[in-house]
């Protein structure tokens, strides 16, 4: 089996002690591990087949469709004023929402890990609500809460703060959906922190604030960054929870997915796809950075344990 040839090492006399499989220079030792558990080819085969059918082939259609545009057509489409305004809004609101979530999400995670209070189990479970609540439900609910006569809107309106149909509304919706990402990435790291490190710092004379700033925060930073990036990435693509509260005014409150949707409604698939490519490239870059961050977190933790 050539596929396993990466296992190959320089011949060693010990190999002749174990059964061999295959012919020629790529003869491999049949290790016990490979022999005992069945189903490798079947499960890997099905995994790759399903992945290709559902994800890879359809996704590649985006790049196929874009190639029907010339470079200048593509560039013209993705730099239309409405598109540029939507990038600014989508990026800005997503970034701010992730930032606000990083701050409050950290406090929520801290409180859930370190303190006891009434109803903690329920509060902990409720944090996942934005994952569980369908985005359309979140969308109409936020829109009605922040409308002029809404529960929250009626208090903000007299102060001169308008949320519904403004960019602030986009930010509010993105904050709602991003919260669990921060809490759920920071929480396990806070739980695993070794109390001895804090005790050591305290016994060496550090006050509580110094311990937090110099000992706890540096250890949580990779997780916080991962959570931030996940929340940011999710916010960039968000559609359902935003459209109801944003009002989708061109150049003002149109997020990028709404632009794509608009082109689709006009059956202009090439244009829609061009803008989708821009979003996909950004999302993939973020996915890559999450993986790098995760790797960094793992390394960070393993060195701190050693």
């Amino acid at each position: 089996m050539v596929a396993a040839s990466w296992n190959y090492r320089a011949p060693n006399w010990r190999w002749f002690m174990v059964p061999m499989r295959g012919n020629g220079p790529w003869r491999l030792p049949m290790t016990k591990r490979n022999r005992v558990l069945p189903g490798f080819r079947l499960t890997l085969g099905f995994t790759l087949f399903y992945l290709g059918l559902i994800v890879l082939i359809p996704l590649s259609a985006v790049f196929w469709k874009t190639s029907s545009l010339t470079w200048s057509e593509f560039w013209h489409t993705v730099t239309l004023p409405t598109a540029l305004a939507s990038y600014r809004l989508t990026f800005g609101a997503s970034f701010l929402a992730a930032l606000v979530n990083a701050f409050f999400g950290f406090i929520v995670a801290w409180v859930l890990v370190r303190y006891q209070f009434f109803g903690k189990t329920w509060v902990d479970a409720l944090v996942d609500l934005p994952f569980a609540l369908p985005t359309a439900v979140a969308g109409i609910t936020l829109a009605s809460l922040y409308a002029k006569a809404g529960w929250i809107g009626q208090w903000l309106e007299p102060v001169g703060i308008r949320v519904a149909n403004t960019q602030l509304g986009v930010f509010v919706a993105l904050t709602f959906i991003g919260l669990p990402f921060i809490v759920r990435t920071v929480q396990p790291i806070l739980e695993d922190l070794d109390p001895e490190l804090e005790e050591a710092a305290a016994s060496l004379g550090a006050n509580r604030w110094q311990v937090f700033w110099r000992v706890i925060l540096p250890m949580v930073t990779p997780a916080l960054l991962t959570g931030f990036t996940l929340a940011f990435a999710r916010a960039l693509g968000e559609y359902g929870s935003v459209i109801f509260i944003a009002g989708n005014i061109p150049l003002k409150t149109q997020i990028t997915p709404v632009i794509i949707m608009g082109e689709l409604d006009m059956f202009d698939y090439a244009k829609a796809t061009a803008i989708a490519v821009v979003m996909l490239i950004v999302s993939f870059a973020l996915l890559l950075s999450v993986n790098v961050l995760q790797w960094w977190t793992n390394r960070h933790n393993s060195t701190s344990l050693a």
Binding site: V55, I57, P58, L59, A61, V62, W64, K65, T135, A233, L236, G237, E238, Y239, G240, T256, P257, I260, M261, L264, Y269, A272, T273, A276, M279, L280, S283, F284, L286, L287
Partner: peptide
């Protein structure tokens, strides 16, 4: 993990394209 990082609108779009 790829589908998680794709915007829902694009997830629909790719099937329209196919």
């Amino acid at each position: 993990d790829l589908p998680f990082s794709v915007s829902p609108v694009i997830s629909g779009l790719i099937y329209v394209l196919v």
